[in-house]
């Protein structure tokens, strides 16, 4: 799967968060946020990431930009290993791999106007601004669908979706090569959402921007991404092409996701499909398949033996005992 044209190669990535407690505040257990995630990405490719809330999508993104130091595994960026690098050594890469954060509110400085925040990023990364800083900032703000007069406002003066777009503008301010976008359009109405997706598509076509695109909206993933990673409890359970998502989906969790996607027609109302069973614990991983407890087709073996991610056909790995 990996080849020399890959801009990013991630192998067996693990991230475990220690949980402290008790009077001595000792490490009592750990959250297994990522348990061996592997994938590779070609320049200009768009990789979708879907998965249950809490399965490690944001953690994966934060490891890629090295906001977290992964517990184990490797991240190769243009063949260069990022995991062991020190703060200083990472500097040249920071500019090239950027992230749009899921929660724009906590990632924007409340005391800085949009102009100040964007100027700071552009100066820090020494972005060339041939027509001047102000022109650069105003252009960016307009590209994410905000009015020019937004530049002199503070974060609290915006609506949720407007703040999200400021986060997008900030991530784009230093012209990254790889953009990790964590739910970038979920707070936006469909029209602005389309506008932002079109913008990302243009950047991809014009500058070969490579994207890791986390989203819960399968309609968006299907439209926008080339391939999709389906995650469950810190593992990839399926990786497939988006061309025929509905036809090719093999893992029961992927199928459950597709089945629970609400349909845009009030005359075609379906009962809410609520999966039975408990959500597994990330503190103590279950011995078998993590999805077995909620899986509608699980068999005895699924509860006791952990399936491995295996190629079911060309470029279509699935981790499930019941798929062949």
């Amino acid at each position: 799967m990996s080849s020399s044209t890959d801009i990013l190669q991630v192998k067996d990535l693990e991230m475990h968060f220690p949980v402290r407690g008790g009077i001595l505040n000792r490490v009592q257990s750990k959250v297994h946020a990522l348990n061996g995630v592997s994938f590779s990405l070609k320049k200009g490719e768009v990789l979708g990431v879907v998965g249950e809330s809490g399965c490690g999508k944001s953690t994966l993104g934060k490891c890629l930009i090295r906001l977290h130091s992964p517990t184990a595994g490797s991240i190769l960026f243009e063949g260069e290993e990022l995991t062991g690098l020190s703060h200083g050594e990472l500097m040249p890469y920071r500019k090239r791999i950027q992230m749009i954060f899921q929660d724009p509110y906590s990632s924007l400085n409340p005391r800085m106007t949009v102009r100040q925040a964007l100027r700071e990023v552009a100066l820090f990364h020494q972005v060339p601004t041939p027509f001047g800083m102000n022109a650069y900032i105003e252009e960016l703000v307009q590209r994410v669908g905000l009015r020019v007069d937004a530049v002199d406002k503070f974060p609290h003066e915006f609506s949720g979706g407007q703040r999200q777009r400021i986060g997008i503008a900030r991530a784009l301010a230093c012209n990254p090569d790889v953009l990790v976008a964590d739910e970038p359009v979920s707070a936006l109405d469909v029209s602005i959402q389309a506008q932002v997706l079109n913008l990302l598509m243009d950047l991809k076509d014009e500058f070969g921007l490579t994207l890791v695109f986390v989203s819960h909206d399968l309609k968006v993933i299907e439209h926008f991404c080339d391939r999709v990673l389906v995650m469950y409890l810190g593992n990839v359970v399926e990786e497939l092409s988006c061309d025929d998502l509905h036809k090719n989906a093999a893992h029961p969790y992927t199928k459950a996701l597709l089945g629970a996607n609400p349909i845009n027609d009030p005359d075609d109302r379906r009962p809410l499909i609520v999966l039975q069973g408990d959500v597994p614990s990330p503190f103590v991983l279950p011995p078998g398949c993590a999805f077995a407890g909620r899986c509608p087709v699980a068999e005895a073996k699924c509860h006791t033996d952990r399936p491995r991610l295996e190629r079911k056909s060309v470029d279509h790995p699935v981790s499930c005992w019941l798929v062949d």
Binding site: E52, S53, E183, A187, H216, L218, V274
Partner: peptide, 12 residues
């Protein structure tokens, strides 16, 4: 908005 569609179904 921050939930996958299976958990969303549960909340709805």
């Amino acid at each position: 908005t921050a939930l996958d569609v299976t958990i969303q179904a549960q909340i709805l």
